[in-house]
């Protein structure tokens, strides 16, 4: 059995306190193998995104542990956690989340800067990355001048900037037309073939079927865990 890149152990997340508290996750256990492609599905508001955020160190669990390789994320201080997010994790969001006042190239350079690259190194690598997602000619345009599909490809390039162990994607196709969606899935497929670990939240079954494994989350628990071919 391949080694686990991410181990989520008995994670609970409670928002609020006292009578007004609501559990988003209750006792979730999940292992993500290195090089695998996992889809998380489930109804809105049942804890999919919270699980993804906790796996990526964007949020901290109320109890339980999250291991990335040999690091225990919930134990890291804010600065170390930030460095881990910069170097080991790549995020892609539904609404692309590019900074509107920077060019496509600069958005990628930003991630490289946080990853510790010098300015000149960063620029060269950012150009290579943009080229790899087929947007070399859009380098100096702001996100507003790009289509949704193009923005999402810039976001993927940004997420890949520092050669992260894992790509975490929250509804990456949620705002794309069918052509852009197909393009993005093709891109993800090739990343997966090259050994990249991918976790994506979606509620589109057709999208989820590209993954090797689909996990269903309902009421803050893992309800079903299915490998393709099962």
């Amino acid at each position: 059995m391949p080694e686990a890149l991410i181990r989520v152990e008995n994670v609970t997340k409670v928002y609020g306190s006292g009578a007004a508290s609501a559990a988003a996750l209750s006792g979730v256990c999940l292992q993500v193998e290195r090089g695998s492609w996992l889809a998380i599905m489930g109804p809105s508001g049942h804890g999919k995104s919270t699980l993804l955020q906790i796996m990526g160190g964007l949020d901290r669990p109320t109890s339980g542990q999250v291991h990335l390789d040999d690091m225990e994320l919930s134990n890291l201080g804010p600065a170390k956690l930030a460095r881990t997010r910069a170097r080991a994790i790549g995020f892609v969001f539904q609404f692309f989340n590019l900074l509107p006042h920077l060019t496509a190239l600069e958005n990628i350079e930003l991630a490289l800067w946080f990853g510790g690259k010098r300015s000149d190194e960063g620029r060269a690598r950012a150009i290579t990355l943009l080229d790899s997602v087929g947007l070399a000619d859009k380098a100096h345009l702001p996100p507003g001048a790009l289509s949704g599909g193009q923005q999402q490809r810039v976001a993927v390039a940004r997420a890949l900037a520092n050669e992260p162990e894992i790509l975490l994607m929250d509804e990456p196709t949620g705002n794309l037309d069918s052509t852009s969606e197909a393009d993005l899935l093709k891109l993800l497929g090739s990343l997966h073939e090259h050994g990249r670990t991918i976790v994506m939240v979606t509620h589109n079954l057709a999208v989820a079927e590209h993954a090797q494994r689909v996990v269903h989350v309902k009421d803050g628990r893992i309800e079903r865990d299915r490998f393709s071919g099962d």
Binding site: G56, L58, P78, A79, A82, R83, R85, A86, R87, F91, F93, N97, L98, L99, L110, A111, F114, G115, R158, N162
Partner: peptide, 16 residues
């Protein structure tokens, strides 16, 4: 605010 969150997701420290 939202951009501050994005910067943090991409890897910015609080100090930055």
């Amino acid at each position: 605010r939202r951009e501050i969150g994005i910067l943090q997701a991409v890897g910015s420290t609080r100090q930055t």
